[in-house]
Design a protein around this nucleic acid. Sequence first.
DNA 1: GCCGCAAGTCAACAACTGATGACAGGTTCA
DNA 2: TGAACCTGTCATCAGTTGTTGACTTGCGGC
Lengths: 205, 205
Amino acid sequence: MDQQRKTEDTLPCAAPLEGSARRPRNAVATRHAILCAARRRFARDGYDQVGCRDIGAEAGVDAALVNRYFGGKEELFAEVLDAVSQGSVDLLSGDRSQFGRRAAEALFLPERGGDAGLEFVNLAVRSAGSPAAREIVRHHMEQQFLGPFAEWVGGEEAGLRARLAASVLVGVVAMQAMLFAPEGGDTQAQAASERLARLLQSLAD
Amino acid sequence: MDQQRKTEDTLPCAAPLEGSARRPRNAVATRHAILCAARRRFARDGYDQVGCRDIGAEAGVDAALVNRYFGGKEELFAEVLDAVSQGSVDLLSGDRSQFGRRAAEALFLPERGGDAGLEFVNLAVRSAGSPAAREIVRHHMEQQFLGPFAEWVGGEEAGLRARLAASVLVGVVAMQAMLFAPEGGDTQAQAASERLARLLQSLAD
DNA sequence: GCCGCAAGTCAACAACTGATGACAGGTTCA
DNA sequence: TGAACCTGTCATCAGTTGTTGACTTGCGGC
């Protein structure tokens, strides 16, 4: 199939270009490749620790194209956050009585069932250190995450409970980013997941 | 009293030097002033966002002295973390049945009762973005914070419960660092504090 | 086949960082 | 008094960053 001429939205997230393969000239595909590369790198290392040159290299392209296609690093980051926060709805899809378990398993047992819309949280935690990124993160956190989240949990003090639950998610992710992995093996992860699930569920109910 | 000749340990945390006042020549006091300035700035802006020149300026001293007295920025940060984690015991002092309330009030109602040993958490959250700082933070988090914490809570799965409680603290602090302040006024803070207190207490019991 | 324009590269800039070593200013003790 | 020493400053280095504009290269239409 002719992937080069697809519109940007339908392109799958391209893998990093390997070897010295030359990307065929195609503005849409290149822009998309930069966006994907940035999404990977920002999620792994955070806004400040990733340079335009890193992103360009991972996309197989010169760093100057970041500015050409996005206007600058900040704007690129904002667009990454836009794309990622769309996935946050996954957290709110499905049974509310299973919310705690879904989120907890995504955090402690990611091998089953993926990230459940927590990519945004990860990105936020790892990038909030930079003042330039923080303003963008804050906006998305309020508008795209806390807002819908509060509406979804509903009930008394919905905003507060949503914010507290979000804080817990943020905290677990931040702790995982500081320490590398929970010391214990799978049984520890299982136990942690169950405890966290109860904790989160008590906020959702 | 002759403050200039005190040993470093007994010196109070010096305020930033104001105006163009010249600090009297005193190695111990100057070293201490740098340490205090670094502690303030790292806690406010995080490791990466504070330069040696900033610290020197706040201490009323040339940036080169950071290297002279501490060997480098990383070593200075490690020493700040050493000093700060000593204060973490405050969190574990007092009645364990009141742990949740103590921590929650320190986070949401800091005007009563100070930080309750949470300065370390704040410092960790704001500095964990930098790889150089993360390694130092990780070491202190494990050895000076999670370890004693787990021992203090005791009981079944103490390590796990301590880690989960620490994650919650980290999350609330991180969330406060991203968004500026809870939107609601004092009544919101009061309600948030009570909910968080229950949450944390359920982990301590 | 050739021209024009879009796509991508490249070198360079200015700002900033942590670090270094030479230097100057004050203190102390003989 | 003067020499040795400690304390602090300064200019400077090398490295990195985001960004810019001039340049080259290749594709599509005539």
